[in-house]
């Protein structure tokens, strides 16, 4: 795990994790938003890179990916955004998020080298389960980068130890069965599930999928080590622009940190 991630989870407050699609609406505008996220209270940036076939995403993220690709975004371009971000910020962790094929196509070793150069802290690949992640994980581990695993409501007691045993940095708990940006799930079960994953992993647990409002973020923050919001930010950025998106980010971050009015 990088020092940046260690420092983030050493803080006595839950982390607010904001997802943006790298290159949406274009690379320059996306860079500006990314650079402003820490100032709006973001503790970890989840930086999406586009893929033509995002099987685990709802329409909001899928359309953001289409816009980003039209604007010339790609895994390579998103690594460039991270590198540019690091010129002015060396403390906020960046976690890449996307699908395996662009990384596989670049070559795992080439990717890891580029990720180190770009100041990346970790990565989540939605379609790379524990059964398939050995090769990439070994290369990332060797560089201190975290390949973060996902636990879901279908990850049963038998499977959970296998899933969390190889995770590094933190565990991403997907709070519902469904695609990104779907309707909310019920509060009670998330509390139990987070406790279950924390106990099995001994790692910080952040919760994502279906968190859209400050109320929900605060609720999740009371039981988890971090809260991820993606689709709501992406949608606001697309419909109302950067200022509105950053203002939403601030509200969500404050709610997560328990510093809301």
């Amino acid at each position: 795990m990088t020092t940046r991630l260690q420092n983030t989870f050493a803080k006595p407050r839950p982390a607010f994790v904001a997802y943006i699609m790298g290159g949406d609406p274009d690379l320059a505008a996306s860079q500006t938003v990314m650079n402003a996220l820490p100032g709006a209270g973001v503790d970890i940036i989840e930086l999406g890179f586009p893929f033509t076939d995002p099987m685990a995403d709802g329409p909001t993220i899928e359309e953001a990916g289409i816009r980003a690709r039209k604007a010339g975004s790609s895994l390579r371009a998103v690594l460039g955004m991270a590198k540019a971000f690091r010129k002015t910020n060396t403390s906020t962790p960046i976690i890449l998020m996307g699908y395996t094929n662009p990384v596989y196509h670049m070559g795992y070793a080439t990717f890891v080298e580029a990720a180190v150069q770009a100041g990346i802290d970790g990565m989540i690949l939605v379609d790379l389960p524990p059964e398939e992640d050995g090769e990439l994980r070994a290369l990332m581990d060797a560089q201190g980068l975290s390949l973060i695993r996902l636990a879901t409501p279908t990850t049963d007691a038998e499977r959970l130890p296998k899933v969390v045993s190889g995770s590094s940095g933190f565990v991403y708990y997907v709070s519902m069965t469904g695609v990104t940006g779907s309707a909310l799930s019920s509060g009670g079960s998330v509390t139990e599930q987070v406790a279950r994953v924390k106990e099995a992993s001994g790692l910080p647990v952040v919760v994502g999928f279906g968190v859209k409002t400050p109320e929900r973020a605060a609720e999740i923050a009371s039981v988890a080590d971090g809260v991820v919001v993606g689709s709501a930010i992406v949608e606001t950025l697309h419909e109302n622009g950067a200022d509105a998106a950053l203002s939403l980010v601030k509200t969500l971050a404050d709610a997560t940190h328990g510093t809301a009015d």
Binding site: V126, D127, P129, T152, T154, T155, R159, V163
Partner: peptide, 22 residues
């Protein structure tokens, strides 16, 4: 046993689908 034909095949799916696939 990993669903591989040489280097091809495998199970590259979201974690949510791993238990039902198994």
């Amino acid at each position: 046993e990993r669903g591989r034909f040489g280097e091809f095949g495998g199970r590259f799916v979201a974690e949510t689908l791993m238990p039902p696939i198994l």
